[in-house]
Each structure stands twice: as C-alpha cells, then as structure tokens.
Design a protein around this nucleic acid. Structure first.
Lengths: 140, 140
DNA sequence: ATCACAAATGCGACATACTTGCAAAAAAAT
DNA sequence: ATTTTTTTGCAAGTATGTCGCATTTGTGAT
C-alpha cells in the first residue's frame, strides 16, 4: 500500500474527511506500522505535534467510518488497527503477552466457530484474543 | 453449587485467603448470580457495606488466585466471572450487544482454533467476544 | 489567488475507573 | 487473651478518555 501524503489525503476525502495534517499523519502511521496501535503509542510516535484530544477524536472518527477497527482492549488501552484481512463478520485474532504487554496479530491462526449464539441475536463481529507469554518472557 | 457462608469460607481458606465478610459476600454474589459481574454491579448489590477500593482489591486477588477470570472489558468496565466451564487454555465465549451494551455468556457456542501462534509463544488463555445486536435492539 | 464557511484542532476543565498509602480494624496464630 | 498479620476504609492520586469553546485550517466558491 502506498502511503504518500497525496494518496492518504485522497483516501481521507473519499471517506468523507477533511485531509488535515493530523489525520494524514495518524493514518500514515497505521499504514507504515502495519500493526495495532493505541492512542499512547501514536502520541509517542508523533510527539507533541498533535493534541491528545485530537488523537482520540481521530481514532473515534476513523473507527466510525470503517477506516479503523478497535482490535482489542489491552489492560486499559484501546488498541486500533486497519481492517486489513478482516471481513465484515470476522477479524484475525491477536496475541497479548501477560507479562510485558507485547501484542501481535496472528495471521496463521484460524478460529472456527460452531453452534448457535441464541435465537434473535445477530452476530456482526468476532474478536479473538490469545493471552500468554511471548518468547522473551517465557523463560523468566 | 452450595453457597452457604461456611463452605464459602472454607473455599476461601483453601485458596489461601482469610475468610473476611467482604470476600465471602463477593464470592457468594458471583455464585448466586451465575453471570459475569463488574465492580459497579457488585457495589450496587452490596450497597455501602464494602468500600470501592476493597472490591477492587478483592477482584484482583481472586483473579490472581484463579477464583475468578476477567471475562471481558465492557466499555470502561472490567467484567469478571467464575471460571466455570473454562479450561486452562480456553474459556467460553461472550456476546456483547453494540447497541445497548447487554452481554451474555455463550454456552452453546464452541470455538475451535487451528494453526500456530508462533514459535516460542505460550498460549494460556483464549478470549472470544462476539459483537452484534441482541433481540431487543435488532429491529430498530 | 482570495474569501467565507464548515469542520477540526488545541486547550483547559471535567468525568470516570481504578490504584495506592496509611492508620484502624478484623482474622488467625500463639 | 494477646500478639501478629492481613484486610479494610478513607482520602488522595493516577490514568484514560470526554466536552465546550475559542481559534485555526481545509475546501469549495468566487
């Protein structure tokens, strides 16, 4: 995926947004990182160029527009990601290390569901989080 | 499951806890409720008999000892439950309505995982959350 | 290119969920 | 019953997220 400012701006405008500097930067960050990001991580990468409140607003707006998904909640942090490889009704699972908090997308891991969720319920999305230990924290 | 105070106290002591009144009440609440509970719900049920901070400490301690699981995060609330029907490496999935926030345990819904989470990673627990609409919010 | 308008931002204040330090109280051990 | 250890209540503190409002910034029209 190309991530130059012009194409990012176009993508934003197509999604109904003004292509402001902050939005271009945040969207570019997600594309460049290729992994889930939280507000805090975004702030750390951008420095004080963008206000905390603006980052929150951008994340909410992007999520509502479908440009981002809230991937999972990590402790107290909401973690967002591009909806790459996520269909309408499922999303790839994630791993989270309970020791160091490190997270990763699990691409080679499939989840099969069986059974009914109950009469009258409509399933729209499926979130799977595997908790455990990463290689670094395993030995300790 | 019997839930009289004496057996609750014994269960607590076996788990390495002092059987204080607050702990007995909180554990009894989970057993009687038979559904996931948040700190706020517990406070509402108990009234001012137990301090907010104590409830948080009890929930943390119980979770660390394996008496409870943190089932999922509902908005800003951490929701806990007894580890009934949850093995070491899997846990029954939950449903959450995106409209009204109502949640439920999915007992008749199995999740099978296939594939590797990666070399060196240790999976300890699996959290599955289905998001969608409940019967009440479906029509709107 | 400039202007005017709608929308986004920054800032400060607020809200909420949770945590921590510490003295007092309650279990358990003696 | 007395001592010891753990837990509790209270109050203050921290962290994450939200809101209102004046100011700034894109954008489309001129």
């Amino acid at each position: 995926m190309k991530a130059d400012r012009t194409s990012l701006s176009d993508l934003l405008r197509v999604s109904g947004f003004k292509a402001t500097e902050g939005r271009v930067e945040v969207l570019g960050l997600f594309i460049k990182a290729g992994r889930p990001l939280s507000q805090m991580q975004i702030m750390e990468m951008l420095g004080p160029r963008l206000d905390r409140a603006s980052v929150y607003r951008i994340l909410s707006a992007f999520t509502e527009a479908g440009l981002l998904h809230m991937a999972y909640v990590d402790g107290r942090h909401r973690v967002y990601e591009l909806p790459d490889k996520c269909g309408h009704s499922h999303c790839h699972p994630h791993f989270s290390c309970r020791s160091c908090g490190m997270t990763a997308c699990l691409e080679d891991f499939q989840v099969k569901c069986k059974g009914s969720i109950g009469k009258g319920f409509v399933a729209e999305r499926q979130k799977v989080l595997i908790e455990g230990l990463c290689p670094g924290c395993k030995g300790k």
